[in-house]
Design a protein around this nucleic acid. Structure first.
Lengths: 149, 149
DNA sequence: TAAAAAAATTGGATTGAACCCAAATTATGG
DNA sequence: CCATAATTTGGGTTCAATCCAATTTTTTTA
C-alpha cells in the first residue's frame, strides 16, 4: 500500500471525486459535465483515469460510483477542504474567502499536514462549510503510526 | 493596473522569481538552471515569458534582473511563503513541514488572503524561514482600499 | 416495438506549461 | 585570435484538461 500522501490526484479530479461523493450512488456523466460546465467526453476520459486509479467503478453508458477506497479517499478530500477552510477562517479570512482559497490549493496539501492541523485544532466536528468527520487513525494521532503494542 | 491578485504566475515561475530576488543583481541562466536541476534552455524560455510579463529584464547572453515591479512582486512572493509557513507552524506543523507544504501550494493563494492572514497575525516580523517585511498598504489594512479622506 | 431523441463513448486534435536535446551563436580568458 | 564556456534557437516530448464530430447505446414515446 502506498503511503497515501493525499497528493495523488489533480485539483480537477479532486473536484470530480468530491462531486461524486456529494451526489452519492451512481452518478451519470452528464451530471458531472453540467456541474462543471465541461463537455461530457471530457468527463468520460477523466473518469477512465480515475477508474484505472481505483477510485471509482465506471459502468459504461450507466455511470460511476465510488469504490470503497475511493469513498475513503473522497471523504478525506472533503475533510481536507473543511479543515483548511476552518484554519483560514481562524486566521482571519471570511467563510467565503476561506472556501474559495482552499478550493484552489487544497489538492496540494498532504494528508500528514492535514492530520497535524486537525490534531492541533482539536479535531473540530464543525467546519465552516459542513461537518468534519474523523477516522480513528486521525483521532489517535501520531503515536500510532506503528502497530499498537 | 491589474488588481494584482497574486495568482498571475505559475508555481515554477514563483520559484524562479524568488531565486532571482534571493540571488540579487544580475543572475545568469546557468545559475538558475543548476539551482533547479533543469536544462539551461528551459530557463531561457521561461525567462522570456517572465520578461514579456514585465517581471524581469533579460539581456540575452548576459543574464536577468528584476524590474521594479518584478522586485515588488518577488518580495510579495517571499512574504507569502513566510506568512503561510508561519500560519502552518502556528497550526501544528513543524518548520520543515510548513515550508515544504507552503512551497507546494503558495502559488495558489491570493494576495488578499495573505493580507488578511498577515493582518490577523499582527504583521509578524519574524517568520519561520526568515524575516517578514511589510509595506504600508498591508500595514494600514482594509479600511483604506478607497482613498483616505 | 420501432423510430426518434437523449446520453455516452470514441477518435482525433488542441492548448499551455514545463521540459530535453542538438545545433548555432555569443562571450571571454588565455 | 581562438578555444571553451555560456546561452539561445529550433525542434520535439509529455501530460492534463479540454473540445468537436462521429458513432454507439440507452431511453422515450408515438
Amino acid at each position: 500500500m502506498e503511503p497515501e500522501c493525499g497528493l495523488a490526484i489533480s485539483a480537477r479530479k479532486v473536484d470530480y471525486l468530491k462531486f461524486i461523493l456529494k451526489t452519492g450512488g451512481t452518478v451519470r456523466t452528464t451530471e458531472i459535465a453540467s456541474a462543471f460546465n465541461v463537455d461530457p467526453s471530457t468527463i468520460t476520459k477523466t473518469l477512465a483515469e480515475m477508474s484505472a486509479a481505483g477510485y471509482i467503478k465506471h459502468v459504461p453508458y450507466h455511470g460511476v460510483s465510488l469504490t470503497d477506497s475511493g469513498k475513503i479517499h473522497a471523504e478525506f478530500l472533503v475533510k481536507r477542504h473543511r479543515i483548511l477552510s476552518l484554519m483560514l477562517v481562524r486566521n482571519g479570512l471570511t467563510t467565503q474567502e476561506a472556501c474559495r482559497e482552499a478550493s484552489r490549493f487544497e489538492s496540494l496539501v498532504s494528508k500528514d499536514a492535514i492530520d497535524r492541523i486537525c490534531h492541533f485544532m482539536g479535531h473540530p466536528r464543525q467546519g465552516v462549510c459542513g461537518e468534519i468527520t474523523h477516522d480513528e487513525g486521525c483521532l489517535t494521532g501520531y503515536q500510532m503510526v506503528s502497530a499498537p503494542s
